[in-house]
């Protein structure tokens, strides 16, 4: 009976708790509140991006361009500011850019009916290309001077809590409210669950998909701003890294099925926390980066294997073309 209730989210939560207890006992200083705060802070960017990715995956999509949109938009904004543009105007420009990216993504997926994986994969390459060719010719953009409140987004503290954590919480809360209480949010669940049925019932499937990718792009910009202000600069090479895979894993690990319609923001938080605990613990143990990577990915694989074992797919009900 217990096994019945063990879905992936609970498995991951359980793993996270076990690891947490284990690290608390074995590692000096792990349980220290300062360390716990920095644990969350260190994965807050991943978490913010995870919230965006969750929106896509719940709607039976995926957004691989998020890791190009994030650095390119933020770096362009910094470039504009460094060239003397007022912050609010630069922010408006960056916002316009990410909305445009979101619209193109959404139109490609909803209207041209290109599978989301490919539309966003290609858009990721295109956005990086546009960025490098025109918007951000030099990879690394640094924040120059400036004591504005704006730069405190990544570095400040409110009531002792680092601002990135607060931004993460804010984004998660807004996304939760959106998915839970707004009509488009409910529609996204419907579309993810069964796009054809959603369409037949009269949901505006295509506009909703476009909206969904616009929101994701905006979340990417938020993550970019937090990253840039936290590190007082940003490097567009992140787009070439494999970080986007980490983001997907955070989401899927938390228990949001790739087939859409299931899960919520809670799952993202659970997945993010597990990754955070793992990374923090392993860094304290002074494991080398490569070993950390191996351990992390093997644990991820184990999590999805367990999920598959508990919720197996059936040949008779598997959907064709469902990769």
């Amino acid at each position: 009976m217990v096994v019945d209730k063990l879905n992936q989210e609970r498995i991951v939560l359980l793993t996270a708790i076990v690891l947490f207890v284990f690290f608390s006992i074995t590692l000096n200083g792990f349980i220290d509140p300062g360390n716990l705060l920095s644990l969350v802070q260190n994965v807050s960017i991943l978490g913010i991006l995870g919230v965006g990715m969750a929106l896509a995956i719940i709607g039976r999509g995926i957004d691989l361009s998020i890791l190009s949109t994030m650095p390119v938009s933020a770096a362009w904004m910094l470039n504009l500011i460094n060239d003397g543009m007022p912050i609010w105007l630069a922010l408006a420009c960056a916002l316009a850019f990410v909305v445009l990216v979101g619209i193109v993504n959404g139109v490609l997926i909803a209207y041209v009916e290109v599978p989301a994986i490919f539309a966003t994969l290609a858009m990721g390459i295109v956005v990086y290309g546009i960025g490098k060719a025109w918007l951000v010719p030099i990879d690394s953009v640094y924040i120059r001077g400036g004591e504005s409140w704006f730069y405190a987004i990544g570095t400040g503290r409110i009531l002792g809590v680092p601002t990135p954590v607060i931004v993460f919480a804010g984004v998660a809360l807004l996304a939760w409210l959106f998915l839970r209480y707004l009509k488009p949010g409910r529609f996204i669940y419907g579309i993810g669950d069964n796009p054809l049925a959603a369409r037949i019932t009269g949901m505006p499937v295509r506009p909703m998909i476009v909206l969904q990718y616009i929101l994701i792009s905006i979340i990417a910009l938020v993550a970019g701003i937090v990253t840039a202000t936290a590190l007082s600069g940003i490097n567009t090479r992140v787009a070439l890294s494999t970080m986007v895979y980490d983001v997907i894993l955070v989401v899927v690990l938390g228990g949001i099925g790739l087939s859409g319609g299931k899960g919520g923001i809670r799952n993202v938080i659970v997945g993010t926390l597990l990754i955070g605990i793992l990374l923090n613990g392993m860094t304290i143990m002074n494991l080398s980066y490569t070993v950390q990577n191996i351990l992390k990915s093997v644990i991820l694989l184990a999590a999805i294997v367990v999920d598959t074992l508990l919720n197996p797919r059936d040949e008779q009900t598997a959907q064709h073309g469902d990769i």
Binding site: I248, Y289, N293, S297, I304
Partner: peptide, 29 residues
């Protein structure tokens, strides 16, 4: 994993990509 356990090809090969890449990095070290 994909054939016998019926896991999703996209996700599984994605995770394997990360695992094997991590192994390669370790091997290079």
């Amino acid at each position: 994993l994909i054939g016998y356990l019926g896991m999703r090809a996209f996700l599984t090969t994605l995770v394997m990509l990360i695992i094997v890449r991590a192994l390669v990095d370790q091997g290079l070290l």
